[in-house]
Design a protein around this nucleic acid. Structure first.
Length: 643
RNA sequence: GGCGGUGUAGCUCAGCCGGUAGAGCAGUCGGCUCAUAUCCGAUAUGUCGGGGGUUCAAGUCCCUCCACCGCUACCA
């Protein structure tokens, strides 16, 4: 029997589960169920990443141990997976003893091989946050980086740690990508990976002495193993690595790692390199999906636009959420989540088309045959056509699902559902009902509909398993595999109950979005007929958000190795700040010094050419992009606000 | 700047190896009554981002420009 090993990332317990976690996990679950229906023996792994400084600190803040903190969050994940009908084989935690042992073994093995070596890590360390900031962080005038969390300057720190010899794997990785062009799906992501590796790989520091909450380095208890070496290893330790367990032999290498695009590099570059270093086989494929956006923006805790699946679960069954997420988003692209879109999709496709089809067919079988077919059906070409259409549908849907294009597959299934609804209207069974001679025809029509429903139901089952099981119950059919369903000529059915009760959009928006979602998207606001400023017009309040002040240029210099950039130091009265402007081709530093200009003072800082630019200079721009800096009357005080 | 992607009906998107535009939703009109006020049919709207080129024929190939997005070591 062929096997299929699939994983989600392990989720960081610093965050409580949200729709993004749900998306990845539902996708993996649907794929698992699909592979099962195809006859594969599957192993589905998910879990949590529990180590690291953030956990250490937030546990400290709550006055509990990191493990207790993790235990609590883990329960929330498991609860959500239970509610969403996620059927995993193992929920691994990086604090599991076998994982810890496995990571240590892996570390030791690569160390002995020589691809892990001790060295010094130099980084920009934030004392108050007790952590390193990334190289991409903005830089202060002193040359030190600025910590994104607290805004304080960092200091350059050197600490002893272990490095992984990632640089040695550049060629081998590129070869691997070349030989396995399908390794990363969708293909566009593969290009990103290849170009990243081609730019050159630096060795990776994989341990920390500043972090205590982690897997200790074997024989060097001062050090703990840092995030990625620890976390990625879960995919093999879950199967029993380093022991030659039956699971490991049967399921490794993984057939599919599913993840969101933000952790692509770690899975597509670091992970294969680690495995090569350990002489292990590489995963076969990695499926990268996009993000769910809210109001066109990435959901984030700080933005407060995170979508909690529990709100939807109050109104809709888990299958509705599963269906929507799989149906709505194209394979690798970001998708926008809107409640309006959600309700419309569920009400039209699942309620009106699919559930109502089942309801009307079930109703007729009950009324006209008392739920039991006599077995005297008189079939015509129309019924045979329905069967043939189904077989064609199944081929297409399976190949879509095989390519993980669930949106396409589900779309095709709905076409078939529409086809069935049309068939009912065309055959007009209610007109046959009263006529004795047409009973065999009526039986043929309804039976064929039940068969078609059961068949389509099997295709839907990986995505909406719970309602699929109910449909099987309604029609007394146990088989979960694919194919044209034939329960026999004399089969009996049960009474059918509503599958996806209609949710009234008005009620949903009135009750739910008011309390739980203080800022509905513009579209939804319009649905609620709230007043809106006309397109292209901003309100006075919106205008007031922009803080423009008069500033005096204290110093100006060209940014080295650029043609267009000037680095300006300006005095705004309340502070002195640096900003970068792309005006060097038209203005010399000399003519700007001491001049008064207008700057946007509350613009989000950006790092340009390694310089943090806090604000932007206001200038008119002609169609060629040439800037014209307005002249400010000499007597204007520095710090004056424009309005 | 480099590499990649996207730009098609009001909205969300299909359109493979080129043959004079499609679906769903929303809108309008009509039909049915078995069904969760559900279903079925018909129907308006598009210079397929702009410009140029190849071709008998181009959303579909080539060039170029614009906008937006992703990765990345630079024009806020």
């Amino acid at each position: 029997m062929s096997t299929f090993y699939i994983t989600t990332p392990i989720y960081y317990v610093n965050d409580i589960p949200h729709i993004g976690h749900a998306y990845t996990t539902i996708m993996a679950d649907a794929i698992t169920r699909f592979r099962q229906a195809e006859g594969h023996q599957t192993y589905f792994l998910t879990g949590t990443d529990e180590h690291g400084q953030k956990i250490e600190k937030s546990a400290e803040a709550q006055g509990i141990t990191p493990k207790i903190l993790a235990d609590r969050v883990v329960e929330r994940f498991k609860d959500l997976w239970r509610v969403l009908d996620i059927r995993y084989d193992r929920f691994i935690r990086t604090t599991d003893a076998d994982h810890v042992a496995g990571v240590q073994h892996l570390f030791r093995k690569v160390l002995e091989k020589g691809d892990i070596y001790p060295g010094d890590y130099r980084g920009h360390y934030c004392v108050s946050c007790e952590g390193y900031v990334p190289e991409t962080a903005p830089e202060a005038a002193s040359g030190n980086k600025i910590c994104a969390d607290c805004g304080k300057e960092t200091e350059l720190l050197t600490e002893r740690c272990y490095f992984f010899r990632l640089s040695a794997y550049e060629e081998r990785l590129l070869c691997f990508y070349k030989d396995n062009p399908d390794f990363i799906r969708p293909a566009s992501r593969m290009n990103e990976v290849v170009s990243f590796v081609k730019m050159g790989l630096k060795d990776l520091s994989i341990t920390r002495s500043t972090v205590k909450w982690g897997v200790p380095v074997p024989d060097d208890p001062e050090q703990t193993i840092y995030v990625w070496f620890d976390a990625l290893s879960n995919y093999i330790t879950a199967l029993g690595y380093p022991d030659a367990t039956a699971d490991f032999a049967r399921f490794w290498p993984a057939d599919l790692h599913v993840m969101a695009k933000d952790i692509l590099r770690f899975h597509a570059v670091y992970w294969p390199a680690f495995l090569m270093a350990a002489d292990l086989e590489l995963p076969r494929k990695e499926l990268i999906h996009g993000w769910w956006l809210k109001d066109e923006k990435k959901m984030s805790k700080s933005r407060g636009n995170v979508l909690d699946p529990h709100i939807l679960l109050k109104y809709f069954p888990a299958d509705a959420i599963r269906y929507f997420l799989m149906r709505e988003a194209p394979i690798g692209a970001d998708a926008n989540f809107s409640h309006q879109g959600f309700i419309t999709r569920i009400n039209t496709e699942l309620t009106n088309d699919w559930a109502n089809l089942i309801s009307r067919v079930g109703g007729m079988v009950s009324r006209y045959f008392s739920n039991r077919f006599p077995g005297q059906a008189d079939y015509s070409a129309a019924e045979e056509e329905l069967r043939e259409d189904y077989l064609e549908l199944e081929n297409e849907v399976r190949s879509h699902f095989d390519a993980y294009a669930f949106n396409r597959g589900l779309e095709r299934i709905m076409e078939y559902v529409n086809r069935l609804n049309r068939y009912i209207v065309e055959s007009e069974p209610w007109k046959m009902a009263g006529q004795e001679t047409l009973q065999p025809r009526l039986e043929a029509v309804l039976k064929t509909l039940v068969r078609a429903i059961l068949s389509a139901n099997a295709l839907l089952a990986p995505v909406i398993p719970r309602s699929a099981a109910r449909v099987r119950e309604f029609f007394n059919h146990a088989g979960e595999g694919f194919g044209w369903k034939d329960p026999g000529e004399k089969f009996a059915v049960r009474d059918v109950e509503p599958l996806f009760p209609r949710v009234d959009p008005k009620q949903f928006f009135a009750e739910e979005l008011q309390d739980s979602h203080p800022s509905p998207s513009p579209k939804e606001a319009q649905m609620n007929e709230k007043p809106q400023t006309p397109e292209g017009v901003i309100s006075f309040d919106e205008f007031k958000k922009v803080r423009m002040v008069v500033a005096r240029v204290v110093a100006a210099e060209k940014v080295e190795k650029t043609d267009k950039l000037l680095r300006l130091t300006v005095d705004t009265d309340s502070d002195t700040r640096t900003l970068v402007a792309g005006i060097a081709q038209y203005y010399t530093p000399e003519e700007l010094v001491d001049r008064k200009i207008i700057i946007v003072a509350n613009l989000q800082p950006a790092t340009i050419r390694g310089i943090e630019s806090r604000g932007m200079i206001l200038a008119a721009s002609d169609k060629d992009g040439r800037p014209y800096i307005p002249v400010i009357p000499e007597e204007t005080p520095v710090g004056a606000i424009m309005r």
